[in-house]
Design a protein around this nucleic acid. Structure first.
Length: 432
RNA sequence: UCCUGAGUAGCUCAGCGGCAGAGCGGGUGGCUGUUAACCACUAGGUCGGGGGUUCGAAUCCCUCCUCAGGAGCCA
């Protein structure tokens, strides 16, 4: 008899098999009939325990099962009598590995604080299973796309000497007798060094922000993929981002049908997002918002409400490009046609999921960059290496960073990014 | 840091000045096709902590704590 996994059931109809997993739920129908829902990490299947078929002793073993007990089951694969395309197991025998007593997560609703406190167990529920599998698929789609575009993985350091911004948003860690180091907010500056060797590079890892943000779009530790490419300018940079996002959408739709169904995600909406992305300048966006009655100025950033208005009428994500330079980062190249603007773009996801990518063409001129850094009061000795990149063969280059959890949240239709990472870290939670 | 809301059984919540409640979960029993199964019975309480008002406080007031959503903030 073969030991199989639930995803293989369709190939074993009519055969006796062995499965290993956990009890998701059980239902008692009568003194002679019980249903046990088995999950094994690859899926779920209903097992039918009928006392006259399996015998007194084997049925007693089924009666002793509890939610989340780990076990091995033997039985015959069949088709559900009333559900098309659904399989079930006619049980012959069950052997518990470890009997779970009083599993804390029940079948009814729970609050977020309780569930996050039980995150190590909450991971087992159907929705979390589906979301984490979509996370894996998004991760895998990003890597597949970049590999196909000639990007080389280049791991940026996580411990860094300091920030280019003020250090209040950084997590500080003691570093031997050298004072403090800080957890990285982004590996971008290091990637700019990498492209001068490898032409196109990316990193993919955790980044850390000590901001006291308390919203459904913020985590203090989240995963970001930063890509950087030599000889790529602003327009091509946006094209790469659009191609990447559309590749992610197609990959998730293709590989995660079951997961999306479990989450009751509207896949037509996702499908429609796989189309050319509108590109608005920041000025056009402000004009639009003004026409809708927003009290906003040409030098302003957008709040959550504005972001939603900008994408409300679009099926696809929307690029907002060429922002006022003074509200963007120092390393962004200025627009030659309008020096007050930065050659940058934010990509806003539709359906209210917010900003998922930020990118820009980078400043290439040594003196220009140096003067901006000085005026920001940055520690020039710590960043000499970064200025060196503009002294020894500076080239046009661009890059962008994509937030994994927000992208997963959009794909999965999750209201909160805390469900898009196995163990979320937020302002009021670092455990479990 | 600010604004708003919440904290009552293991969980989700109702009760909002006069006997501490329901559903789920636990336990016991019933039902041959259930899908968060259902039905009956049963056990289960420091009403977030402290202080105050009142004949009487889960309920009103003050204060602190915790959580949520949002704002600010967010290479």
């Amino acid at each position: 008899m073969q030991t199989i996994q639930i995803y293989q059931l369709k190939d074993f109809v009519g055969q006796e098999v062995k499965l290993r997993g956990w009890v998701r739920n059980w239902r008692k129908q009568s003194s002679k009939l019980r249903f046990v829902v088995l999950r094994d990490g690859t899926g779920e299947v209903q097992c039918v325990a009928h006392k006259p078929d399996m015998g007194e002793e084997a049925f007693e073993a089924v009666k002793a099962l509890s939610i989340e007990t780990s076990l091995e089951v033997w039985g015959t694969v069949g088709r559900h009598p009333r559900r098309e395309g659904v399989f079930e197991i006619a049980l012959k025998r069950v052997v518990p590995m470890q009997v779970a007593v009083d599993y804390p997560i029940g079948k009814k609703e729970h609050g977020p604080d309780f569930l996050l406190g039980q995150r190590h167990l909450w991971l087992r529920s159907s929705r979390q299973w589906a979301q984490l599998r979509i996370r894996h698929t998004v991760y895998s789609a990003i890597e597949g796309f970049l590999n196909g575009q000639g990007f080389i993985r280049f791991d940026s350091p996580i411990l860094t000497p300091s920030s280019c911004e003020d250090t209040t948003t950084l997590f500080e860690v003691p570093y031997f007798d050298m004072g403090s180091a800080y957890l990285s907010q982004s590996g971008q500056l290091y990637l700019e060094a990498g492209i001068m060797s490898l032409r196109r590079v990316y990193d993919f890892g955790p980044v850390f922000r000590a901001e006291k943000s308390k919203t459904r779009k913020h985590l203090t530790e989240f995963w970001m993929m930063d890509a950087e490419a030599a000889f790529v300018e602003h327009e091509e940079n946006m094209q790469i981002q659009e191609d990447l996002i559309r590749h992610i959408i197609r990959t998730v739709l293709e590989r995660c049908a079951t997961e999306l169904e479990t989450l009751e995600r509207d896949t037509d909406t996702l499908r429609r997002a796989d189309a050319p992305f509108p590109r608005w300048t920041h000025r056009q966006a402000i004009d639009y918002l003004k026409s809708k009655g927003c009290d906003i100025d040409y030098s302003d950033d957008f709040g959550a409400a504005e972001e939603e208005m900008l994408t409300a009428e679009s099926d696809t994500p929307v690029f907002i490009e060429r922002w006022p330079a003074e509200i963007k980062a120092f390393y962004m190249r200025r627009d030659p046609e309008s020096p007050g603007l930065a050659l940058c773009s934010d990509l806003l996801a539709p359906e209210g999921f917010g900003e998922i990518i930020g990118g820009s063409e980078r400043e290439t001129d040594h003196d220009e960059l140096q003067s901006r850094m000085k005026s920001l009061g940055m520690p020039m000795d710590e960043y000499q290496w970064y200025l060196d990149l503009r002294k020894y063969g500076s080239v046009p280059h661009s890059g962008f960073g994509i937030g994994l959890e927000r992208t997963v949240g959009w794909m999965a239709g999750s209201r909160h990014v805390r469900e898009c990472i196995p163990f979320p870290r937020m302002i009021s939670r670092v455990t479990p």
